[in-house]
Design a protein around this nucleic acid. Structure first.
Length: 922
DNA sequence: TCTACACCGTAC
DNA sequence: GACGTACGGTGTAGAC
C-alpha cells in the first residue's frame, strides 16, 4: 500500500520554537525551531513515504476570519527570532525534495484535511504529522495522526477515545464545547475535556447537548446555557475543511530527489552536524548517534515536549499488537517450557491481586522470548465460569529451574515487584539481568515517567491497554483474579511482549552511552535483588510503644486545642490553614509576613514564629502542629502498616524515584522518621530488634561535603577533611580567621549554614533568612567563604557552565541529570535549574556510593543471612538487625565496606552505633 | 464518595 | 523570587 505523509509545517515550527532552547549558529542566526523541524523531517524521510507534502499557512485572512472577526485576534505577531527561521526552513524543505503547499483563503489544516480525505479515498495509507490535536477529527481507517514532538500516535478510533474520551466524529463538537484559547474561541466556561467528553458521552453530539442544556444542573449548566448562542459558530470554526479546491492531487506529491549540494550548504550554515554527517553517508552509525546529538543539544526542549522522536523514527513493527496465547493445557505449557529452555533470555511479568508485593497472591505469569509473541499462564482466575487452569504447583515447578538458572537472563519491567511475588511463591529468581524501568531511568531520569505504558508510548509509539481498561478503577475496580481470561491474556501477554520490545529499544540507546550503561549495569541492576531483600526483611516495630506515644500526643493535642480555643475566643479547626489564616490575619489583624506560592498569607512555621511575640496563639498552634504531625504521620500510621504475616513493616524503595539517583521510600516512607526534636526522635525507639538481636546504624559522615571537596579539588576543603576536624568548625575557623578552639557556637552555626546552603545553591537572601541576619551580612559571609575556598566557587561556575552547554550534569560515576530549564527564558525556572545543577552531582554521587556499598555488603552478608539483616536505607545511613554474637564481626566489616565504596580525594568516614532500637543506635 | 490540589512538615 | 531531593497527612472544592 502506498503511503502519503502530510506535514503540518506551521504547527511544528511554532511548537519547536517554543519547546526548544534559543539555539544559534556561529553567525548568531537563530536555529532552534529550524533544528526541531529538520529533525522531524528527517524522521519522516526514514519512513520512506511514497508521497509527502509540507503544508504551511499562506499569509492573509481565511474564511474563518470572515465567519468570526476575532478569530486568532489575540495572537501576537510572530517573534523576530522565529520569523527569521521561516525562509531557511522552506529552503531546507525544498532541498529535501518535499513539495511545499501554501493555499490562500484557507489554513494549512484545511489543505491537509482535503488531501488526507482524497488520499484515503484512493486507498493510500495517510499519516498526518502535526502538533495540533484538532486533527483527531480526521482519524479513521486509512488516516492516522502522529506528533513526532510528543511521540503520540492516533491510528484508530479506540486510540482517540483513549486520549480524549470521545470518538473522532465527536472531536469537532468536543472542541466547540471547550473552545480554544489560542485561537481566541471562547467555549463553555469551566468546561474542560472531562466535562465535554462526559456530555458528549451522554447526548452523542453537540446538538444533543444543546437540546438537553436545561437538564444540566449547577453552575456549569448555567455556563452552558450562557454559551449556547455561540456553539454552532464554534463548530464551524473547529471543523477542518475537506473539500478545498486544490491544484494538486495526492499522487502529485511524489518525493523529489534531494538537492545534496544545497542541503550540505544549508546544514553547514546552520550547524546541523548530525544531519550533515548523515548526508555524507554515515547512515548506520548515524542512527544511534542521532539520539545523542538531539538530547545533548536540546535537552531542555525535549524534556518539556516528551519523546525525542523527531530524531528517532519509530519502527512501525514495534508498534503493532502481538499475538498472545493463553496457556491452559499441559501440552501448551510443555511447548512454552521448551521455547524458554532453548532461549538464552526471556521477558516475564507476574499478575497478582495486590499492588503490595508482600501481600500479593499470584494470579498468572506471562512470558516472551521473541517480540510479537507471548504466553499468559493463568493460575488463579476465580470468577464464576472461569475455564479450568493448570495447577499453580505444576506451573511453578516447571518454571522454577528456568527462573533459578543464573545463566538464563531474565528481562522485566520493575522486576523487583515480581521478584518479591515469585519468592513468596517459592521461586528465588537468579539471573535477573535487565529491567526496562531502570534502563529508562538511567537514560533520562526526568524525560518521562518510567511506567511501562509511558515507555511504550514514548519509545515504541505503542499504546498499551491499561490496567484500568481490563479491571476498572476506583471503587469499582476488580481484582485481576476476576478479569476474564481473554482480557487478561491480552493485557498480561502485552506486559511481557512490550517489556521485550522496550528492552530491545532501550538497550540500543544505552549501548551508545557507555557511561550510562555502566551506571545501569554496575550500580542499578545489581541493586535490584538487594533492595528486594531489604524490603522483604522489613523492620520490627514496637506497635505498643507507638500506641502509647499516640495516646500521650493525643492528650497534649487536646490541651493545646483547648488553649487555642480560649485564646481565639471561638472554636476553629487547628488543622485548617484556611480557617487559621482567617483567624490570625483577618480577625486578630496580625501581620501576614509570609505568603504562600499562590499569594495567600501563609500560616507555616516561619510565619507563625514571626508573629509569636505579638500574640500567644501562634505559639500554641505551633505546638499543636508539631504534636499532630507526629501522631497522624507516624505514631498512628506505622502500627497500621505492620504486615500480618511477618509482623514487621515493609517499606518499598523506589529505585527510579528521585532524579538524582537517590532512592525514595514509601508505604510507609521510612526515610523521614523524625530525629530533630525529642518528641520526634522518640519514634525511633519503636524501631526495635527481636530478642537476642541489636540494631546497628552506620552512616557516612558529611558525605556530600566530602564529594564537594573531591569535585572542586579545593585545597582548603581537602585539607580540612584530611585533618579529620569537625568540618563546620574548620570552616568557621577559616572564614572568621580563628583557631579551631576560638570558634564560637554562633560562628560554627553560620559556617554550617553556609556549608549546607552551598550544596543547595543558596543565595545570600536564603542564608540571611536562615541565620536571621541582614542580607548584606550574609553576602559578606559568602564572599569571605569563597575567598577562602576559591576552588569551590570555580567548581560551581564550571558546573553551571557544563549544564548550560550540555544540558546535563553528571556524578562521579557518570550518572546524568538532564536539566530541562537550564536555558529557559524564564529567570525563575532557569535559576532553579542552576541550583539543581549544583546539587545533583553531590547528591547523586552520594546516592551512587551508598548503592555500591549496599551491593557489596549484601554480597558479604549472603553467607550470614541468619545472623544479620539489612533493614533500612536512609540516603547516607544503613541500618542492620544483628545477632548479638555477630555484632563485632559486622561492626568490623560494614563500615569498612561502606568507606571503600568509592575512592575520592578525601577519605570517606563512616560512623556507627549500636542499640536495642534505632533511637539508641543512631 | 472520590479526586485533585494547596498547604504544611518530616527526612537527608 | 530567593535551598536541593523526596513522601504523605489534612483540608477543601468540585465532580460523581
Amino acid at each position: 500500500m502506498k503511503r502519503l505523509v502530510l506535514i503540518d509545517g506551521s504547527s511544528y515550527l511554532y511548537r519547536a520554537f517554543h519547546a526548544l532552547p534559543p539555539l544559534n549558529n556561529e553567525a548568531g542566526e537563530p536555529t532552534g525551531a529550524l533544528f526541531g523541524v529538520v529533525n522531524m523531517l528527517r524522521a519522516h524521510l526514514k519512513e520512506q513515504p511514497d508521497y509527502i507534502a509540507f503544508v504551511v499557512d499562506a499569509p492573509g485572512p481565511t474564511f474563518r476570519d470572515d465567519l468570526y472577526p476575532q478569530y486568532k485576534a489575540n495572537r501576537k505577531a510572530m517573534p523576530d527570532d522565529l520569523r527569521a527561521q521561516v525562509e531557511p526552513m522552506c529552503e531546507i524543505v525544498q532541498a529535501l525534495g518535499f513539495r511545499i503547499l501554501r493555499v490562500g483563503g484557507v489554513e494549512a489544516d484545511d489543505v491537509i484535511g482535503t488531501l488526507a480525505m482524497q488520499g484515503a479515498g484512493e486507498g493510500l495509507e495517510v499519516t498526518i504529522s502535526t502538533g495540533d490535536k484538532d486533527f483527531a477529527q480526521l482519524v479513521r481507517p486509512g488516516i492516522a495522526l502522529v506528533n513526532t514532538m510528543s511521540g503520540s500516535r492516533y491510528d484508530s478510533e479506540a486510540s482517540v477515545v483513549d486520549k480524549f474520551g470521545v470518538r473522532p466524529a465527536q472531536i469537532i463538537d468536543f472542541l466547540a464545547l471547550m473552545g480554544d484559547a489560542v485561537d481566541n474561541i471562547p467555549g463553555v466556561d469551566k468546561c474542560g475535556p472531562k466535562t465535554a467528553a462526559k456530555w458528549l458521552g451522554e447526548y452523542g453530539t453537540l446538538d444533543g447537548v444543546i437540546a438537553h442544556a436545561d437538564a444540566i444542573k449547577g453552575k456549569i449548566g448555567d455556563n452552558l446555557r450562557a454559551a449556547l448562542p455561540r456553539l454552532p459558530l464554534n463548530r464551524e470554526l473547529t471543523t477542518i475543511k475537506t473539500d478545498v479546491a486544490l491544484e494538486y492531487r495526492p499522487q502529485d506529491l511524489v518525493l523529489q530527489p534531494r538537492a545534496t549540494d544545497a542541503l550540505r550548504t544549508l546544514y553547514a550554515r546552520y550547524g546541523f552536524k548530525q544531519a550533515l554527517r548523515e548526508l555524507e553517508g554515515g547512515a548506520a552509525g548515524a542512527d544511534a548517534d542521532a539520539g545523542r546529538i538531539s538530547v545533548r543539544g536540546t535537552a531542555a526542549g525535549y524534556a518539556r515536549a516528551p519523546a525525542p522522536a523527531s530524531a528517532e523514527p519509530l519502527d512501525p513493527a514495534l508498534a503493532t499488537q502481538g499475538e498472545y496465547e493463553c496457556v491452559l493445557t499441559d501440552a501448551q505449557l510443555a511447548a512454552w517450557i521448551a521455547k524458554l529452555q532453548a532461549a538464552d533470555a526471556f521477558a516475564f511479568d507476574t499478575e497478582t491481586d495486590s499492588l503490595d508485593p508482600m501481600r500479593a497472591r499470584l494470579v498468572g505469569i506471562s512470558l516472551a522470548v521473541e517480540t510479537g509473541h507471548a504466553a499468559y499462564v493463568p493460575l488463579g482466575h476465580t470468577y464464576p465460569g472461569a475455564p479450568a487452569q493448570l495447577p499453580g504447583e505444576t506451573v511453578l515447578a516447571a518454571l522454577k529451574p528456568l527462573f533459578a538458572d543464573p545463566a538464563k537472563r531474565k528481562i522485566g519491567h520493575h522486576g523487583k515487584y515480581d521478584l518479591h511475588v515469585l519468592r513468596r511463591h517459592g521461586i528465588e529468581v537468579a539471573g535477573y539481568a535487565e529491567d526496562t524501568m531502570l534502563e529508562s531511568f538511567v537514560l533520562n531520569a526526568t524525560a518521562t515517567r518510567h511506567d511501562m505504558d509511558s515507555l511504550a508510548r514514548r519509545y515504541l509509539g505503542y499504546d498499551t491497554i491499561t490496567y484500568e481498561q481490563v479491571a476498572g478503577k476506583g471503587a469499582k475496580a476488580i481484582s485481576f483474579a476476576q478479569v476474564a481470561l481473554d482480557d487478561a491474556t491480552r493485557y498480561a501477554g502485552e506486559d511481557a511482549d512490550v517489556t521485550l520490545r522496550l528492552h530491545r529499544a532501550l538497550a540500543t540507546k544505552l549501548a551508545a552511552e557507555p557511561a550510562l550503561e555502566r551506571v545501569y549495569r554496575e550500580i542499578e541492576m545489581p541493586l535490584v535483588p538487594v533492595l528486594e531483600r531489604v524490603e522483604a526483611n522489613g523492620v520490627l516495630i514496637d506497635a505498643d510503644e507507638l500506641r502509647r506515644q499516640s495516646n500521650d500526643l493525643g492528650k497534649r493535642m487536646l490541651v493545646a486545642q483547648q488553649k487555642a480555643t480560649e485564646l481565639a475566643g471561638r472554636s476553629f479547626s487547628l488543622d485548617s490553614p484556611k480557617q487559621l489564616g482567617q483567624l490570625l490575619f483577618e480577625e486578630l489583624k496580625l501581620p501576614a509576613l509570609v505568603k504562600t506560592p499562590s499569594g495567600q498569607p501563609s500560616t507555616n512555621e516561619e510565619a507563625l514564629e514571626a508573629i509569636a511575640e505579638l500574640h500567644e496563639l501562634p505559639r500554641v498552634i505551633l505546638d499543636y502542629r508539631g504534636l499532630a504531625k507526629l501522631r497522624s504521620t507516624y505514631t498512628d500510621k506505622l502500627p497500621e502498616m505492620v504486615n500480618a504475616d511477618t509482623g514487621r513493616v515493609h517499606t518499598s524503595y523506589h529505585q527510579a524515584g528521585a532524579a538524582t539517583g537517590r532512592l525514595a521510600s514509601n508505604d510507609p516512607n521510612l526515610q523521614n522518621i523524625p530525629i530533630r526534636t525529642d518528641d520526634g526522635r522518640r519514634i525511633r525507639n519503636a524501631f526495635v530488634a527481636p530478642a537476642g538481636r541489636r540494631i546497628v546504624s552506620c552512616d557516612y559522615s558529611q558525605i556530600e561535603l566530602r564529594i564537594m571537596a573531591h569535585l572542586s579539588q579545593d585545597a582548603g576543603l581537602l585539607r580540612a577533611f584530611e585533618s579529620g576536624a569537625d568540618i563546620h568548625r574548620a570552616t568557621a575557623a577559616e572564614v572568621f580567621g580563628k583557631t579551631l578552639d576560638e570558634v564560637s557556637g554562633n560562628e560554627r552555626r553560620a559556617a554550617k549554614a553556609i556549608n549546607f546552603g552551598l550544596m543547595y545553591g543558596m543565595s545570600a537572601f536564603g542564608l540571611a533568612r536562615n541565620l536571621g541576619i541582614a542580607r548584606g551580612e550574609a553576602q559578606d559571609y559568602i564572599a569571605l567563604y569563597f575567598s577562602r575556598y576559591p576552588g569551590v566557587r570555580e567548581f560551581m561556575e564550571r558546573t553551571r557552565e557544563q549544564a548550560r552547554e550540555r544540558g546535563y550534569v553528571e556524578t562521579v560515576f557518570g550518572r546524568r541529570l538532564y536539566l530541562d530549564n537550564i536555558n529557559a527564558r524564564n529567570q525563575g525556572l532557569r535559576a532553579g535549574a542552576e541550583r539543581a545543577a549544583i546539587n545533583a552531582p553531590m547528591q547523586g554521587t552520594a546516592a551512587d556510593i551508598i548503592k555500591r556499598a549496599m551491593v557489596d555488603i549484601d554480597d558479604w552478608l549472603a553467607a550470614h543471612r541468619d545472623r544479620a539483616l539489612m533493614v533500612l536505607q536512609v540516603h547516607d545511613e544503613l541500618v542492620f538487625e544483628v545477632d548479638a554474637a555477630f555484632l563485632d564481626t559486622l561492626l568490623a566489616e560494614v563500615p569498612q565496606r561502606m568507606a571503600a565504596a568509592a575512592e575520592l580525594r578525601v577519605p570517606l568516614v563512616v560512623d556507627s552505633g549500636v542499640g536495642d532500637n534505632w533511637g539508641q543506635a543512631h
